[in-house]
Computed example of a mutant assay.
Amino acid sequence: MKTWRKIASLILATAMVFAMTACTKDQGNQASSDSASGKYEIALITDVGTIDDKSFNQGAWEGVVAYAEENKLTYKYYKPSEKSDDAYLTSIDLAVKAGAKIIVCPGYLFEKPVYNAQDKYPDIKFIILDGYPHTGDYTPVVKENTLSIFYTEQEAGFLAGYAAVKDGYTKMGFMGGIAVPAVIRFGFGYVQGADYAAKELGLADGSVEIKYTYVGNFDATPENMAKAASWYNEGTEVIFACGGAVGNSVMKAAETAKTKVIGVDVDQSSESQTVITSSMKNLTKSVYDALTEYYGGKFRGGEILYLDAGVGGVQLPMESSKFEKFTQKDYDTIYNKIINKEIKILGDQDAADASKLETTKVVVDLID
């Protein structure tokens, strides 16, 4: 995993260079490799953000850049004109017209667009992250030209909650975006990890407090910042900001309050000095590996994969984390326990809400 963290850092620098020197065409803000023919065989469609969003799009894009640069392949990303199924399909159409052989679609917003595109373009391969194609009824319809990838967010959240308590935090917060399954899993894992660490430390029952909410969006807003500020003013020491741009609001509040934040999806340590660690999905590695399989003639079309700690699918970025007590040895020990299934971590289908996780050391305060 250390190797991948180093690679990710190099890729970030590369991606930013391409972003600054991008060609502006059909939809604007499109970074690409040089292509004399105007054809780009690896494509990525962003959801509602850009490839330098320090979150889901960027993590996936870095995987594209890494593989394409290493193998001297052309690549390009497309930013839809709006948040709609039609706009996503239009971007897919543009990518296909520009020569795409394989298209990466990061996020559950692509579930219905990819459902349609996989039939419209049977010779094109699709990789969808955090979602699977369906018509709207959530019945998976994953064709042979589509690979669906999910992550065990409950494990990533567990690592973050465990590390925070081991580092001495007992007044904590979870501020999720929209209560979609992935966000719920992050939150459930966070609560369980905190409880597990508190038990190991011999803390009293109820000694760890976690304020818990879903703000209902994935945006940086004054309202989200105000909510985070109020939590910090009430004594919360660290908030797990699990909602895309919601994290920017939480970080600003933490900078004012001189408190701490846990980032999500990718390593967000460069975003603010308040970020002590990030609960990561290894997006870069998963996209890189899927492209490797495709070009190696082993594309796992028709499958739904769940990438867990056992395959390096989730992690904390220990090299950039700002822990004072929690060590690499501590991390390796708990990570191996998760790999070996020595710990049962509940997911989004295992409890009605975070307060029903039957923790003993952690008290969850659900906040509307």
Rank of each mutant, 00 (worst) to 15 (best):
Y331H: 09
E70L: 13
A182Q: 04
I149T: 04
T152I: 13
A15P: 11
A253I: 01
E342M: 02
N340K: 09
G313D: 05
A354P: 02
W61M: 11
K120I: 00
G49S: 15
K329M: 14
T333N: 15
A220R: 12
E144Y: 12
Y214G: 05
V65W: 14
K361P: 01
T74P: 02
K199I: 12
T256M: 06
Y40C: 05
P133K: 02
I239R: 00
I92M: 06
F326E: 02
V191H: 03
Y331K: 04
D330A: 05
A194L: 01
G235L: 01
K97M: 11
A160W: 02
G297F: 10
L316Q: 09
S320P: 13
E41W: 11
L94H: 14
G107H: 02
F240M: 09
K227T: 12
M225V: 08
L109H: 06
Y169C: 03
T74G: 09
Y115L: 00
D368G: 10
T327W: 07
S32K: 07
T152P: 11
F126R: 03
N29E: 10
G161L: 06
K258E: 03
I262Q: 06
G38A: 08
V362G: 02
C23L: 11
T50N: 13
T21V: 10
Q118R: 10
A87C: 03
T74V: 07
N217C: 07
F126D: 02
T74E: 05
N71L: 03
S207P: 01
A179W: 06
S269G: 15
K25N: 15
T152W: 07
V96C: 07
S148C: 13
V191Y: 00
D330K: 10
F186M: 00
Q27M: 05
V266R: 04
D130R: 05
E82P: 09
P140C: 07
D130F: 04
D332N: 14
D34P: 10
V183F: 00
M175C: 06
L44S: 08
M1Q: 12
A204M: 09
Q58E: 15
L10K: 13
E303P: 07
A182S: 10
T292S: 14
D86E: 09
F188A: 09
S278A: 12
E69N: 11
K258I: 01
L73A: 11
Y108I: 06
V287P: 04
S33Y: 05
S278L: 08
W61Y: 14
Q58D: 11
E342W: 10
F186I: 03
M280W: 03
S207V: 01
P80I: 00
E209K: 13
N116G: 04
S32G: 11
F110C: 04
A15W: 10
I51L: 10
V250T: 05
P140W: 01
E255P: 13
V311C: 15
D332W: 11
I239C: 06
T327Y: 08
Y232S: 07
D195P: 02
S355N: 07
A160R: 01
T74W: 02
I343A: 07
S55A: 13
K79L: 10
V48Y: 14
Y169M: 00
T170Y: 05
D93T: 05
E69A: 09
P106A: 12
G136E: 00
A257C: 08
F158L: 08
A68S: 15
A197D: 01
E41Q: 11
Y121L: 04
A43Q: 04
Y115F: 12
E144Q: 11
V142D: 03
